[in-house]
Amino acid sequence: MSTATTAPVPAAAAQDSPTILSARGVTMRFGGLTAVNKVDMTVHEGEIVGLIGPNGAGKTTFFNCLTGLYKPTEGEVWLAGAELPPKPREVVVAGMARTFQNIRLFANMTALENVMVGRYCRTSSGPLTSILRGPKFRREEEATRARAQELLTFVGLGGKGEHLARNLPYGDQRRLEIARALATDPKVVLLDEPTAGMNPRETEECKDLIFKIRDNGMAVVVIEHDMKFIFNLCDRVLCLVRGELLVEGDPGTVQSDPRVVEAYIGGSELDDEEDEH
């Protein structure tokens, strides 16, 4: 399709590179409800993968399984050649960072401090070092600050480091969340609806930012409702419907797949089970 061609890197190029994240048969049940059913996903280095699906399709639940927030009932997730550790914190250390659908910044910290918190797992000053303030502490603190400032500039918030997160405009908060995720030095970044509530211009900027992240060698997985956005952005798109993987392929294939169209437009039978977990 015409919209798909705007992505600067052809989809095929990224798929030749090695796998960084793979989910095999991930299933998540809450009591009798199967929110995610045997979903497979493979993400290669430097690839942007989109995850779409109608409300209640299980996209966010699947994300939570990938980041250790939920432990999948069945199936396994491998990140950079190792099975995913069970705790969210260890998942971050292993190289996966995420943002949240409903922004979860540390509202009463400054933008810079928010990003500095992201550096927590990559620094090691303990309580004694912090109290004694030796040269190592100073060096590390300085490096943390510099890196955080660099990331703020990267996402376009360079001049707003001292603003409280809660006082930032909505679009900036979304970008700050991305900067905070990037501060953990991830190999894969998971973005949960990064453009929700953004105006067209901000959406466009967000797209450029995601390309920039990809160009820095990270793989990106994006959940989105904005079809135009996702088909312009992604190398590959997965469509989830009722917890199951419906279609997978390059944007053109998915966009023209009649089942996807039906799931979104003709799927009137979905209306009565719109419980999102």
Partner: peptide, 18 residues
């Protein structure tokens, strides 16, 4: 910073590697 992050949003702090 870790403490304040926990005070602000424990779940988000955990998800950010704190």
């Amino acid at each position: 910073r870790g403490w304040i992050a926990i005070r602000e949003d424990e779940k988000a702090a955990e998800a950010m590697g704190v």
